[in-house]
Simulated scan of single mutants.
Amino acid sequence: MAHRVTGVLIFFFLFVHVLDTALVRVSPEAYDEVVATYKTPLVAVLEYGLVAAILFHALNGLRVIAVDFWSKGARYQKHMLWTVMAVWVVLMLGAMYPVLGHAAREVFGS
């Protein structure tokens, strides 16, 4: 279920991204205003959520491929899920500063 949800969330992000990028052809001033709103702490948290969704979707997709194409995949499905979760947590901890660092500096000053 989480794999489907993250897939839908990533799709909606890509849809909005294409729309806001296309806005530069219609009105560069409006595009600049939209991009300025992306530099807020709230959007930084949403970006971190996007990173979380993409990482989980990618890692879990590899697990699904292994279950489908590896003869022992079904037997080790639960182990692979826990491995995916562990790798995901480590990668999310590593992504915390690069993604949220500028938002923390803006909120707390630096």
Rank of each mutant, 00 (worst) to 15 (best):
M1F: 10
A2N: 15
A2M: 14
A2G: 13
A2S: 12
A2T: 07
A2F: 14
H3T: 04
H3E: 15
R4S: 06
V5G: 02
T6A: 05
T6L: 02
G7N: 04
V8S: 10
V8C: 10
L9I: 05
L9V: 09
I10D: 02
F11P: 01
F11G: 02
F11E: 00
F12Y: 15
F12H: 06
F13M: 04
F13D: 02
L14V: 05
V16Q: 14
H17V: 00
H17K: 05
V18F: 12
L19M: 15
D20H: 07
D20M: 11
T21I: 06
T21W: 13
T21N: 13
A22Y: 13
A22R: 10
L23T: 01
V24F: 12
R25V: 03
S27D: 10
S27E: 06
P28H: 08
E29C: 00
E29P: 01
A30K: 10
A30D: 12
Y31L: 01
Y31T: 00
D32C: 00
D32A: 11
V34A: 06
V34Q: 05
V34I: 05
V34R: 06
T37S: 10
Y38R: 07
K39T: 11
K39A: 12
T40N: 03
T40Q: 03
T40H: 08
P41H: 06
P41W: 08
P41K: 03
L42E: 13
L42V: 11
L42M: 12
V43A: 03
A44V: 01
V45F: 14
L46D: 14
L46Y: 14
G49N: 04
G49F: 05
L50K: 07
V51L: 06
V51K: 01
A52T: 11
A53N: 08
A53T: 08
A53S: 15
I54K: 01
L55I: 06
H57F: 14
N60I: 09
N60M: 13
G61K: 02
G61C: 06
G61S: 09
G61D: 07
R63C: 04
R63S: 01
V64R: 02
V64E: 13
A66I: 12
D68C: 02
F69I: 10
F69D: 13
W70R: 06
W70P: 00
S71H: 15
S71R: 15
K72A: 11
G73R: 03
A74Y: 11
R75L: 13
R75Q: 14
Y76Q: 04
Y76N: 06
Y76P: 00
Y76L: 03
Q77R: 15
K78P: 01
H79L: 15
H79N: 14
L81T: 15
L81F: 13
T83E: 10
T83N: 08
T83K: 10
V84F: 05
M85K: 10
M85R: 13
V87S: 01
W88C: 00
W88H: 13
V89N: 09
M92A: 05
M92K: 03
G94C: 06
G94V: 04
G94W: 12
G94F: 11
A95L: 06
A95C: 08
M96W: 15
M96P: 02
Y97I: 11
Y97P: 01
P98H: 08
P98L: 02
V99Y: 09
V99R: 01
L100H: 03
G101F: 07
H102N: 12
H102A: 11
A103Y: 02
A104T: 11
V107F: 10
F108V: 03
F108D: 07
F108G: 04
G109N: 12
G109F: 07
S110Q: 12
